[in-house]
Computed example of a mutant assay.
Amino acid sequence: MNSIYIVMAIMFAGARRWSRGREPRFRTELGRISYYFSKDEAEKAIKANATLKSEESKSVYRYFLREVPAGEALYDGEYKREWVYDATGKLLDHTLCSTCHCDIHTEHYIFGGREPEQIRFSAGDIVEWYDGYGSVWLGVVVGTPYTVGRCREMYETLRRSPRFAGLSDDKITFPLDFSDDSYLIVNTENYMESHVHVSSHYVSAPTFPVPQNLLKRLASCFKNCADE
Rank of each mutant, 00 (worst) to 15 (best):
R66T: 15
E67M: 14
A50H: 05
E41N: 14
E67G: 02
S54W: 10
S57A: 15
F37N: 13
F64M: 13
A45C: 04
A48T: 14
V68R: 09
S38M: 08
S38Y: 06
E55S: 13
F37G: 12
L65H: 09
P69V: 05
D40F: 08
V68N: 03
L65V: 09
S59F: 02
K53I: 00
A70W: 05
K39H: 11
S54I: 06
A45I: 02
E55L: 11
A42E: 08
E67L: 02
K58L: 13
E67C: 11
E56H: 08
E41R: 12
I46V: 15
E56F: 15
K58F: 12
N49E: 14
S57N: 09
Y63S: 11
K47M: 03
N49T: 06
G71C: 01
K44V: 03
S38E: 06
S59V: 01
S59G: 12
D40P: 03
S59D: 14
F64W: 14
Y61K: 02
A50M: 02
E41K: 14
F37C: 06
S54R: 08
A45S: 15
A70T: 05
E55H: 10
P69G: 07
E56L: 15
R66K: 14
F37Q: 10
A42L: 08
E56I: 12
E56V: 13
V68P: 02
F37E: 12
A42N: 10
R66L: 15
K39E: 13
S54P: 04
E67S: 14
A48L: 04
A42P: 13
A70Y: 08
A45W: 09
A45H: 14
P69M: 04
V60E: 01
K47Y: 00
D40L: 08
N49K: 13
A45K: 13
K39L: 11
Y61L: 10
E67P: 02
Y61M: 04
Y61I: 03
V60N: 01
R66S: 15
S54Y: 09
A42V: 03
Y63T: 05
G71D: 01
L65W: 12
S38K: 04
K53M: 04
D40A: 12
D40M: 06
A42K: 07
A50C: 02
I46D: 06
A45D: 15
K39D: 08
L65T: 04
L52R: 10
E55I: 09
N49C: 06
K44A: 07
K53S: 11
Y61T: 03
L52Y: 02
R62A: 02
K47T: 12
S59L: 14
L65E: 03
K58R: 14
K58G: 11
K58I: 03
A48K: 09
V60L: 01
E43K: 14
K58M: 13
R62S: 02
A50D: 07
G71F: 02
G71R: 01
R66G: 01
A50N: 07
A42G: 11
T51R: 13
